[in-house]
């Protein structure tokens, strides 16, 4: 069977349609960066291990380095360029800025996209690997620093800015009305702007 190894595809990115020919081997990450000049999404490991290339697919976080562009046709793709509301930064972006949730900044777009979706996952009642009781009858646990660390573990930061990243995610989660239950008291303190010490 002779198969074409390239296709013309239309990608829906940040609400805009982009039509382009792609070799099927092209990842979504390479299509974004090399073909569409959307270089906010970063290439770290290119093998699904670092999270720098995290984008949102139909609202859920995914690594774009293992996502073939041709297989992303028809899905709603949101990159770091698309999370703000015009000039108004997304609350997660603002929290990372306010609390220095980075050093070099390379992992930051992935961290922010990941955190946006992570906060929604928690609000939807998804348990995590550190949730003591996963049964639906168990009282939903508030977001803690331990929960944030586990849920964000797919995003590595080689500068080691994790302490500030946890605080920034906590700040954004605290500001999110959808958080039921809200963040823990411990986390609310950590997210407070006056608070200077880090998260142990």
């Amino acid at each position: 069977m002779s198969q074409s190894t390239a296709s013309v595809i239309t990608l829906n990115i940040n609400g805009e349609k982009h039509t382009l020919p792609v070799d099927h081997r092209t990842t979504l990450l390479d299509a974004l960066r090399e073909r569409l000049d959307l270089t906010g999404t970063k290439k770290g490991c290119d093998q699904g291990q670092c999270g720098a290339c995290t984008v949102l697919l139909d609202g859920r976080r995914a690594v774009s380095c293992l996502q073939l562009a041709v297989a992303a046709e028809g899905r709603e793709i949101t990159t770091i360029e698309g999370v703000a509301d015009g000039e108004q930064l997304h609350p997660v972006q603002q929290a990372f800025l306010d609390l220095d949730g980075y050093q070099c900044g390379f992992c930051t777009p992935g961290q922010i996209c990941s955190a946006i979706a992570m906060i929604e996952e928690h609000a939807a009642g998804w348990p995590s690997a550190v949730t003591a009781d996963v049964r639906p009858e168990a009282e939903a646990a508030p977001l803690t620093a331990e929960e944030i660390r586990e849920r964000m573990s797919g995003n590595l930061c080689r500068c080691g800015a994790y302490v500030s990243i946890v605080r920034a995610v906590a700040r954004a989660a605290q500001a999110d009305d959808a958080q039921q239950p809200p963040v823990s008291d411990e986390l609310a303190r950590l997210a407070g702007s006056e608070q200077k010490e880090g998260v142990a």
Binding site: R60, L66, P127, D133, V134
Partner: peptide, 29 residues
Amino acid sequence: LAAHPEVRRRYPALAQAVLAGASGQLRNM
């Protein structure tokens, strides 16, 4: 799979096993 109420209620170890694997991004894919 890991978020499904009946999985978490009837087979909690299955939900825990899935949650113990990979990352949030990879589990979504």
